[in-house]
Design a protein around this nucleic acid. Structure first.
Length: 405
RNA sequence: GGACGGGUGGCCGAGCGGUUAAUGGCAACAGGCUGUAAACCUGUCGCUCCUUGGAGCUACGGAGGUUCGAAUCCUCCCCCGUCCA
């Protein structure tokens, strides 16, 4: 069932968002502290310490591809929503305004006026999403800019350098995100290339850190399409890099959802227990606790922000497609259980009116709500883990999800 | 009173003898979106009937006419603009 969200459990598991200061920023680029572990699942709650604050995990990271979460101000994000870490994108910011410009202007944090943490994706996802505009070689990826058609070569080394120039707290290695489905043979070749790139990126990164230490971590990415053996081979090989954290990529590329979960399960027990695990590009609200139950600490997804703009709103009672006629004269708030600015002030009828009129305010209010919904869910999850009630929470979520279906 | 230009599906607006139930756009209605080329994309959009695929009916201001065939050509009428008296 499409838009179910784990909201019926809201009252029992209220969100906790209390940023804490960073303790040991000078010991390593970032450090991960496990606060609580679930006794029945692989879930854990932790603190990820960065030079730009501590991040409570499990965490959902809003996507701000072009150094902005579309529709929101940095104040909305930090003060209203309590966002501790944002995602930005190397491919997009490399093309415009350029990493050297951002370096010159004091780094990405200063450039976009964001004092909390930033994770930058390498451009590996654009290998997938812009597949018609790129060519993969052993050396790297040649992109034909979607802006002006210019050719740009992204290598494992150059993407590390660009992200260092940004001043990102967490850098991602350049990877190849394969489409679905691919043959085992193709997936294997692709995974091995990603692996070689990860080694090159890591070597380059270590060199840069030796000459100019900075509190910036580099995460490699487990690939292998939907083949457990390839996933495990990739994860095992990446352990040699002794990275500060590990990502699981190549999910949500069109595969059935159970497969995504299976890939996380195949990988998770190989990854270091004391390092954060990041599932890239997931997921729907009901999936968030499922990933956490499988040992994931970090997630990001464009769904709450993009779907907000496209009229698809996530509530504790399920999805609301705001353009539907049934909301035309609906005077209730979008989500009666939600404390966000949008829900505390505006009716569904007004939101629908703004959407139908193409008003900018619609995107602002909708994005604000959807992100709040995601962050609330993460708060519920974290609280449940800490209070040792995560299995019950998960049951509650699954049953609500099944009922809705 | 005269001269031009017009009246097309909810609206705007193409079409100017057959491939036209009628291009587009808007509106309406629905679906999609997962490390963002996305405030985007797709579908439906006269009525009735049967399962897909189709079948029938009604339609381009009105009434006649020409033609195998008319939204398209002709005649008259009605209405709307602009200009001249």
């Amino acid at each position: 069932m499409p838009g179910w969200t784990p909201g019926s459990c809201y009252k029992r598991f209220p969100p906790t968002i209390t940023p804490r200061p960073c303790h040991n920023r000078y010991l390593s680029p970032i450090s991960f502290e496990i606060v609580a572990e679930c006794s029945h699942t692989r879930a854990r709650a932790g603190l990820l310490h960065t030079a730009h604050g501590a991040i409570e995990t499990p965490v959902f990271m809003p996507v701000g591809t072009q150094a902005t979460v579309k529709g929101l101000t940095q104040r909305d994000l930090a003060e209203d929503l309590g966002v501790q870490i944002l995602l930005a994108n190397t491919y997009h910011l490399f093309l415009r305004p350029g990493h050297e410009l951002i370096r010159k202007l004091g780094g990405l944090h200063r450039f976009m006026s964001w004092s909390n943490a930033i994770l930058t994706d390498s451009g590996g996802y654009q290998v997938f999403s812009l597949s018609r505009l790129r060519k993969i070689t052993e050396h790297g990826v040649v992109f034909q800019s979607h802006l002006d058609g210019d050719l740009h070569t992204f290598t494992p080394e150059s993407t590390v350098d660009a992200q260092l120039a940004f001043g990102s707290d967490i850098l991602m290695v350049l990877d190849e995100c394969p489409e679905y489905p691919v043959s085992h043979e193709q997936a294997r070749a692709s995974m091995h290339r990603t692996l070689r790139w990860a080694r090159l990126a890591n070597q380059h990164y270590r060199g840069r850190m030796a000459e100019n230490p900075a509190p910036q971590a580099l995460f490699p990415i487990v690939q292998g399409s939907m083949f457990p053996d390839l996933r495990r081979e990739c994860a095992a090989a990446l352990l040699d890099l002794d990275s500060a954290g590990y990502a699981i990529g190549g999910l949500s590329v069109g595969e059935p959802r159970p497969l995504s979960m299976e890939m996380v399960e195949a990988t998770e027990d190989l990854l270091p227990r004391d390092k954060p695990r990041y599932a890239m590009g997931v997921g729907m609200p009901a999936e968030l606790p499922e990933y956490v139950a499988r040992g994931v600490d970090m997630m990001d997804c464009v769904l709450p922000s993009r779907n907000a703009r496209n009229g698809y709103l996530f509530t504790s009672e399920g999805r609301v497609i705001i353009k539907h006629a049934r909301y035309k004269d609906d005077d209730r708030p979008l989500d009666e259980k939600c404390q966000c600015y949008t829900c505390s002030r505006y009716s569904r009828a007004y939101l629908r009116h703004l959407f139908q009129s193409g008003e900018i305010l619609y995107a602002v209010l909708a994005t604000r709500h959807n992100l709040r919904r995601y962050l609330d869910i993460m708060g519920e999850i974290r609280h449940a883990i800490i209070s040792d009630s995560f299995p019950e929470y998960l049951r509650c979520v699954r049953s609500a999800s099944n009922n809705a279906a």
